[in-house]
Design a protein around this nucleic acid. Structure first.
Length: 479
RNA sequence: UCCUCCUUAGCUCAGUUGGUUAGAGCAUCUGACUGUUAAUCAGAGGGUCCCCCGUUCAAGUCGGGGAGGGGGAGCCA
């Protein structure tokens, strides 16, 4: 058996002095031909390995370079130096993998996030990304734990789909055709009957409609999987491939839905705070240093951990679209024409500058906006009695904007088909979806939450490309 | 897709009005030192100035086009 190693995190936490300890990891720095800062990914804190002078051959010492992988066995002793309490006095050092220092791109210094994005295959070896991806893991685990504890069923919805009527965004085509010679109809159009699935297929943009089908039997379900949008979006909060969480609940109205979403967000944040305190403290410090570079007025008032605790301990502000428009309309910002798009009439969609104003300036906390005008929302949202609005909800978070989009679904067959016809959504193609309204339809609701945006919010990373291991964006699908 | 900024050594950047052999810090290599903490000290090597075209006696520098990247907007999660 090869792996009998002890994790560095455990060694440092226990502070126990013992012999016969084996650690494996990667060299961060090698100082004075004697002191190795070794990291094994379990924590950002390095273990100081001491290679006593004269004890090891020059041929071994030469190979202890930044990035090299080592297996070290020895004795944990109280440190003779000042920077750490304990250290590993090496009895043997085995080079598991060499690292040519002249070619290894990571140096013991600060690198720009843009540069690290270009070497995304190696950026896990930096403290920032190690922390981000440990936190990402914890959040993903917390998602499953939250829903499992509440009796939800984790539903795997298809990644390849033939339904193109969801209107959530541009889709990537999935085909097995030889693109230079696809099968064609007599009129020259592509004949998808000859394609792999016998029809045109795409990568999913949302598992919601399938989620609703399962919710009509299992009552409480959620999805958590990859989602694809072929939008040409070049921003710090959009990806072509991202992970989405979509709970769908029978016997829920809009208020139940908002309550669940708020409880859910608070739960996963507190779970990360409890289980990744060290990483969040590191990221908090990183963010604080980054903030120092900004002009005073652009700096955020709260530190990262402070902000997370604030979100956990305060209720999200809830108001209707109509109330929000009223606030925006009467704001000094609007009167002084500081908005690029001035708020004049009811019914227009809010721009991100308006959302930011509400969240960051007016309420200074997460906001749940409900009851949007029906003409700016999807066909499946439940129509309110006023005839003008639908039971939609968006949750807006400081710094990143829309983090959750959801609604109570239209459960009344006649109302739903009427709306589909108005919006030119094919009732034939979605006949299977309408069956849920034909047989035992019940009030139900759900929401979608972009996982990377949550990771951004919790880690304080400002660019979404830095919270997913290998980001897919327009003109970029490296690794 | 639109607006805007950027691209010079492995990294972060400087480079004057267009003018001889393009610089610094860090990293790397060599040597010294040896309880260091992104060690320190001394020395050395390292360049397709993003690409193409043009203006000019002369282009890292000016003009046009292209590519890549950042920030903002739209679309959204």
């Amino acid at each position: 058996m090869f792996n009998k190693r002890t994790r560095i995190k455990d060694l440092l936490a226990n502070e126990s002095l013992s012999s016969g300890v084996i650690v494996m990891g990667w060299v961060r720095t090698f100082r004075n031909n004697q002191f190795i800062a070794l990291n094994d990914g379990s924590t950002n804190n390095n273990l100081q390995v001491v290679a006593e002078l004269g004890k090891f051959k020059e041929s071994i010492l030469k190979r202890i370079t930044t990035g090299a992988a080592l297996k070290v066995s020895g004795e944990m002793i109280s440190s003779l130096g000042k920077g750490q309490k304990i250290e590993l006095k090496a009895n043997s050092i085995e080079i598991l993998g060499d690292s040519d220092a002249e070619k290894y791109p990571l140096q013991p210094k600060k690198h720009s996030l843009e540069f690290l994005r270009e070497i995304a295959h190696l950026r896990f070896r930096t403290n920032t990304f190690a922390s981000v991806f440990r936190v990402r893991h914890t959040l993903a685990f917390a998602v499953h734990k939250f829903f499992n504890d509440k009796g939800f069923v984790y539903l795997h919805t298809p990644i390849i789909t033939a339904s193109d009527a969801e209107g959530a965004g541009e889709m990537f085509h999935v085909t097995n055709f030889d693109l230079t010679h696809p099968a064609k109809n007599e009129d020259g159009s592509i004949n998808y009957k000859e394609d792999f699935f016998g029809k045109a297929t795409n990568l999913t943009v949302s598992g919601q409609l399938e989620g609703e089908l399962a919710a009509m039997a299992l009552a409480d379900v959620y999805t958590f999987g990859p989602t694809f949008r072929a939008e040409n979006s070049n921003t710090a909060r959009h990806l072509a491939e991202f992970w989405m969480i979509e709970p769908e609940m029978a016997f829920y109205d809009l208020e139940d839905n908002a309550n669940l979403a708020e409880e859910f967000i608070k739960y996963i944040i507190s779970y990360a705070l409890e289980n990744n305190k060290e990483d969040l403290e590191f990221l908090s410090q990183r963010l604080a240093e980054e903030e120092k570079q900004k002009p005073q007025q652009e700096r955020s008032e709260m530190g990262l951990i402070e902000k997370l605790e604030f979100v956990i301990n305060n209720n999200f502000e809830r108001l209707t679209y109509t109330e929000a428009v009223q606030i925006l309309k009467e704001s000094n910002h609007n009167k002084k024409k500081k908005f690029q798009y001035l708020i004049e009439e009811w019914g227009v969609d809010l721009q991100s500058e308006h959302e930011r104003y509400l969240v960051e300036k007016h309420f200074k906390k997460p906001v749940i906006l409900i009851d949007y005008p029906k003409q700016i929302k999807a066909f499946y949202m439940r129509q309110n009695d006023d005839g003008k609005t639908v039971a939609a909800m968006d949750i807006l978070a400081p710094g990143i904007g829309e983090i959750v989009g959801g609604s109570q679904r239209e459960e009344r067959l006649d109302k739903l088909t009427e709306r589909m016809n108005e919006m030119h959504v094919s009732t034939e193609e979605l006949d299977w979806y309408l069956d849920t309204r034909r047989f035992g339809s019940v009030p139900h609701a759900g929401f979608g939450l972009g996982f990377e945006r949550v990771v951004q919010f919790v880690t304080g990373m400002t660019n979404i490309r830095d919270v997913i291991p290998f980001p897919r964006t327009p003109k970029s699908a490296e690794f």
